[in-house]
Measured scan of single mutants.
Amino acid sequence: CHSECLGNCSQPDDPTKCVACRNFYLDGRCVETCPPPYYHFQDWRCVNFSFCQDLHHKCKNSRRQGCHQYVIHNNKCIPECPSGYTMNSSNLLCTPCLGPCPKVCHLLEGEKTIDSVTSAQELRGCTVINGSLIINIRGGNNLAAELEANLGLIEEISGYLKIRRSYALVSLSFFRKLRLIRGETLEIGNYSFYALDNQNLRQLWDWSKHNLTITQGKLFFHYNPKLCLSEIHKMEEVSGTKGRQERNDIALKTNGDQASCENELLKFSYIRTSFDKILLRWEPYWPPDFRDLLGFMLFYKEAPYQNVTEFDGQDACGSNSWTVVDIDPPLRSNDPKSQNHPGWLMRGLKPWTQYAIFVKTLVTFSDERRTYGAKSDIIYVQTDATNPSVPLDPISVSNSSSQIILKWKPPSDPNGNITHYLVFWERQAEDSELFELDYCLKGLKLPSRTWSPPFESEDSQKHNQSEYEDSAGECCSCPKTDSQILKELEESSFRKTFEDYLHNVVFVPRKT
């Protein structure tokens, strides 16, 4: 048989008469490798580009789960590009990614509803959504962080984005990388972005840091009482949809009607710091009717980097990364020049730590249904340095008659930039024990000054392991946590139920 035959053949030295091919099969003959313009397919066939392209389009058009959109890589027609490569849609070739590779997620039936953290986790790592997304989240724990972890990498949506009755959302900033909504599939009414009845939605994105392009379709905003109209108009300008909307697409009466839409800028007039305090004062603000001013709200939190936005980490279910302080308005003076500047002394802060701070007014709604208010920009203030805590785990070892090696770990709280350490030492008198000992005694162990690591005695271990207080009263049991108490109650309830079950099964009433 021919060298490319495997198993047997019907005619000697003829690659077209093989029972099976050793390498690849091409047009009725066995070959060692697939010549151009053919590609290896499933490690035994040679196919042309049209064959591989037909497989790709067949799966793409069917949208069946589990099928493969075949691509070409290293002269092979394979189910998908290997790690580190992405497909070129024009020629199906796998090309190296520039940075992290995109991950295209194809949605069944063309859309997916995100109504819980669990459903959001199914899209973790996706960068391109081939379909439409509907966000409908009523509640949950730590929602802002969970949504950002699972949806934060999405850069492109081919269909539309719909935010509907998501009472738990305060902001859409968890879509931190969303840059493009194509609108290839539109919501009824030709809408590519749809926001309806979101009672706590206050911000779409921080438009000073976020760009969003909507290729096709219109915007729809109705019944978002805490979303200011200025935020919607800003989205029109940034996304390129200005002029597409009709009169009733953006409701003037049901958007922002319960919001404090600040239209003035508060400026800080005085800032002073110490290692654990920050004193702030800002310019006074009074609405047209000074009785509408209820006070100020001061927001602050630790910020290692200057990239904080107002609604980071917030949701309507209680999660809030900001510390909020309510401040009463100052006494009002008739003389504008003698107006008191409101302020606040922030206490209990960490030394040498940068804080993000902003302040906003708290006002009631005027009778004319106009909203007044003022808010400052987010500023960054760093507390002063102070003395560091003591170095940890000092170790001293003498390696000769004239040297001592000293080692330690950095302090747990540096409280500033540590530039150097101060080492103090003092000579001590020799131990009298060394002169009084009889060095001729056998088995004498000389006193040693070398360091030995501390260890816990058996008594201390027994005390720590004991669940009861000892007789001397030195140790006591740790208080039980809520989960331990709940577990004990469940076990007790189970024992009672099981005992009742045994009584009912074992003891049967005697027939009379």
Rank of each mutant, 00 (worst) to 15 (best):
K103P: 06
C105A: 00
C105E: 00
H106A: 03
H106G: 06
L107H: 11
L107D: 03
L108V: 15
L108Y: 10
E109V: 02
E109W: 14
K112Y: 06
K112A: 11
T113N: 06
T113G: 06
T113Q: 15
D115K: 13
S116H: 10
V117T: 06
S119D: 11
A120V: 12
Q121N: 12
E122G: 07
E122T: 06
E122R: 15
G125Q: 14
G125P: 01
G125H: 13
C126K: 01
T127N: 07
T127Y: 09
V128C: 06
V128Y: 08
V128T: 13
N130G: 04
S132G: 09
L133T: 01
L133R: 01
L133P: 00
L133Y: 02
I134T: 14
I134W: 14
I134S: 12
N136S: 07
R138T: 05
R138L: 15
G140Y: 08
L143W: 15
L143M: 15
A145M: 12
E146Y: 15
E146F: 02
L147C: 03
E148V: 04
E148K: 09
A149Y: 07
N150G: 04
G152H: 11
L153N: 12
I154T: 05
I154N: 01
E155H: 12
E155R: 15
E156K: 06
G159N: 02
Y160I: 01
L161T: 02
L161A: 02
K162I: 05
K162H: 13
K162C: 11
I163P: 00
I163A: 02
R164C: 06
R165T: 15
R165H: 06
S166G: 11
Y167P: 15
Y167F: 14
V170W: 05
V170K: 05
V170S: 09
S171R: 09
S173G: 05
S173R: 08
F174N: 02
F174V: 09
F175Q: 00
F175K: 00
L178P: 00
R179L: 07
R179W: 09
R179V: 06
L180W: 14
I181Q: 01
I181N: 00
R182H: 10
G183L: 01
G183F: 03
E184M: 03
T185Q: 13
L186P: 07
E187K: 13
E187H: 09
E187R: 06
E187G: 12
I188T: 13
I188D: 05
G189F: 09
N190Y: 06
Y191E: 04
S192F: 00
F193M: 12
F193N: 01
Y194H: 12
A195V: 11
A195K: 00
L196S: 10
D197R: 15
D197L: 15
D197S: 02
N198E: 01
Q199D: 15
Q199C: 14
Q199L: 11
Q199P: 07
N200M: 09
N200D: 07
N200L: 10
N200A: 06
L201W: 04
R202S: 13
R202Y: 09
Q203F: 04
L204F: 09
W205G: 05
D206F: 06
W207Q: 03
W207V: 05
S208I: 04
K209C: 14
K209R: 11
K209A: 11
H210L: 15
H210I: 06
H210K: 13
N211M: 12
N211L: 11
N211Q: 12
T213Q: 10
I214M: 12
Q216H: 11
Q216T: 13
Q216N: 03
G217P: 01
G217T: 00
K218R: 09
K218C: 15
K218T: 14
L219C: 15
F220A: 07
Y223Q: 11
N224A: 01
K226G: 11
K226S: 07
L227A: 02
L227V: 06
L227G: 00
L227P: 00
L229G: 04
S230P: 15
I232G: 01
H233R: 05
H233M: 00
K234H: 13
K234S: 11
E237V: 06
E237A: 08
V238L: 11
S239Q: 04
S239V: 14
T241D: 13
T241N: 11
T241W: 08
T241F: 09
K242V: 10
K242L: 14
K242Y: 07
G243E: 11
R244A: 05
R244S: 06
R244D: 07
R244E: 07
R244K: 13
Q245E: 13
E246H: 13
E246I: 04
D249F: 07
D249S: 03
D249R: 06
D249H: 02
A251V: 09
L252Y: 05
L252S: 14
L252P: 10
L252W: 12
K253T: 12
K253P: 11
T254F: 06
T254W: 07
T254A: 08
T254V: 04
N255W: 05
D257V: 12
Q258D: 11
A259F: 06
A259K: 13
A259H: 08
C261N: 02
E262N: 14
N263S: 10
N263V: 05
E264C: 05
E264P: 07
L265K: 14
L265A: 04
L266Y: 01
L266T: 03
L266R: 00
I271K: 14
T273Y: 06
T273L: 04
S274W: 05
F275R: 15
K277T: 09
I278A: 02
L279P: 00
L280F: 01
L280S: 01
L280N: 00
R281I: 14
W282K: 00
W282E: 00
E283R: 14
E283N: 11
P284K: 10
W286M: 06
W286N: 11
P287I: 08
P287F: 04
D289K: 03
D289M: 03
D289I: 02
F290M: 02
R291Q: 15
D292W: 11
D292F: 09
D292E: 14
G295K: 13
F296S: 01
F296L: 02
M297L: 14
M297K: 13
F299T: 06
F299V: 06
F299E: 11
F299R: 14
Y300L: 07
Y300V: 06
Y300N: 08
K301V: 05
E302A: 15
A303M: 05
A303T: 11
P304K: 08
P304F: 12
Y305P: 09
Y305V: 15
N307F: 09
N307H: 12
F311M: 07
F311A: 14
F311P: 12
F311G: 05
F311L: 09
D312Y: 06
G313M: 13
D315E: 03
C317L: 12
S319M: 15
N320I: 05
S321K: 15
S321F: 07
S321E: 13
S321V: 09
T323H: 14
T323Y: 01
V324Y: 12
V324P: 03
V325K: 15
D326R: 03
D326P: 06
I327R: 02
I327K: 01
I327D: 00
I327H: 02
D328N: 11
P329I: 09
P329M: 09
P329R: 13
P330G: 05
S333I: 05
S333R: 05
D335H: 12
D335I: 11
D335N: 06
P336H: 06
P336Q: 14
K337N: 14
K337T: 12
K337L: 11
K337S: 11
S338N: 08
Q339G: 13
N340S: 08
H341T: 13
H341D: 09
P342V: 09
G343C: 09
W344S: 09
W344I: 03
L345T: 11
L345V: 11
M346I: 08
M346N: 01
R347E: 12
G348S: 12
K350T: 06
K350F: 06
P351L: 02
P351H: 05
W352M: 14
T353A: 13
T353I: 12
A356K: 02
A356T: 02
A356N: 00
I357T: 13
F358T: 03
F358V: 05
F358S: 09
K360F: 02
T361Y: 04
T361Q: 14
L362R: 02
D367P: 06
D367N: 08
D367S: 08
D367L: 10
D367H: 11
E368F: 14
R369L: 12
R370T: 12
R370Y: 08
T371R: 07
T371Q: 11
T371Y: 13
Y372Q: 05
G373A: 03
G373P: 06
G373R: 03
D377R: 11
D377T: 12
I378T: 11
I379S: 06
Y380G: 01
Q382C: 03
D384L: 12
D384H: 13
N387L: 04
N387I: 13
P388M: 04
P388F: 06
S389C: 04
P391S: 03
L392I: 06
D393H: 07
P394F: 02
P394H: 03
I395Q: 06
S396P: 15
V397F: 14
S398F: 09
S398Q: 12
S398M: 03
S398K: 01
S400H: 12
S402C: 03
Q403Y: 15
I404A: 14
I405T: 06
I405M: 02
L406V: 14
L406T: 12
K409L: 12
